[in-house]
Design a binder for these strands. Structure first.
Lengths: 185, 185
DNA sequence: GTCTATATCAAGATAGAC
DNA sequence: GTCTATCTTGATATAGAC
């Protein structure tokens, strides 16, 4: 019988992948436990409900975005196009996965209208994302315009993730990257 | 075109609303039965599995789009802007709901990577939608351009639905309507 | 066509041994 | 910290009476 200690951090990382692959409601505590190499009972030692795991997962995602992605908008060593490209790629790396979708968008849509503790975290994720994009746009466009361009970029990105998955074709996402970049000189 | 709604038709209409509100996996057969004013056992008289109900729901949505929405792109009595406006509003009426999301996008994301019978119907919905939009754009833009503009409009629409729900603010969706319309003269 | 009753299984969650 | 065992509830689905 293996007695391998697991850390809460590792569980959150694994749970992120499982949730992204199967969605919130379609993922069971057994699924999460199994993916972590634990029995269901052991899993409750770390998290006492599914809601709290997702809360931890999304808080981790937000934290990572704040650490690694959003500051790119202020990186003085890059020009606007370079910032935008690096920002979009980094956000993609954090939020997306080979064949899973966007953890933030999927969870938002699934839990729309439900009373779950992590909705405020999802809002923060998208507001932070919009703010970072609009900072870059605001170097070349007026305030109101740059805000709407940022919102538009986020919407296109999420729509593209959906269509790319549905048709199993990266082109939708690639087009959005090119289109968003091409708005900057 | 059926003049009299059968019971099965009514169930499909009700199921559409429930699925749109609660999602595919988070909706139970009990939920559907209750919403139809039936006992669970009675419900199985009409549909013997949840998958078949969703299949019927999405087929009905596709059929309605083909009958009522997509032909607007060919309506000779309207100019391009009028066609676009009427098309977008009609698609919104069929696919969206007060506070529920887009049945096609939500179901697509939830069942991504799963083997369910209705994925091909979802693909048809989005391909039909893109085609209708690109028909209108192609009156004023070259072929390749109009195709990408149509894809972009769909992506923005779906992203806007997500953000409008998340922040409980219609403005995202309204902006997309205005922006898409403004591309036409 | 609708109901009640029930079988079967999975889910969320807890208790207690080691 | 991990396990097995168990509780409770809810889910899918079927059987059979009216």
């Amino acid at each position: 019988m293996p007695l391998i200690k697991t850390s809460k951090e590792e569980i959150i990382e694994t749970a992120l992948k499982v949730f992204r692959e199967n969605g919130y409601y379609h993922t069971s505590m057994s699924d999460l436990a199994k993916a972590c190499g634990l029995q269901k009972g052991s899993f409750y030692h770390y998290f006492d409900s599914k809601e709290r795991i997702m809360d931890a997962v999304l808080s981790k995602v937000l934290h990572t975005l704040k650490e690694e992605a959003f500051p790119i908008a202020d990186d003085k060593s890059l020009n606007d196009r370079e910032r935008m490209q690096k920002l979009m790629l980094t956000i993609g790396k954090i939020m997306l996965q080979q064949n899973g979708g966007c953890i933030a968008a999927n969870t938002s849509l699934e839990t729309n209208g439900k009373e779950v503790m992590f909705r405020k975290t999802i809002k923060e994720i998208f507001l932070g994302w919009e703010l970072a994009l609009s900072k870059i746009f605001s170097n070349q466009f007026p305030e109101g315009t740059s805000k709407r361009m940022a919102e538009q970029a986020v919407m296109e990105f999420e729509g593209a993730v959906m269509l790319s998955q549905l048709h199993n074709n990266d082109q939708y996402l690639k087009d959005v990257f090119v289109r968003t970049l091409s708005k900057l000189r």
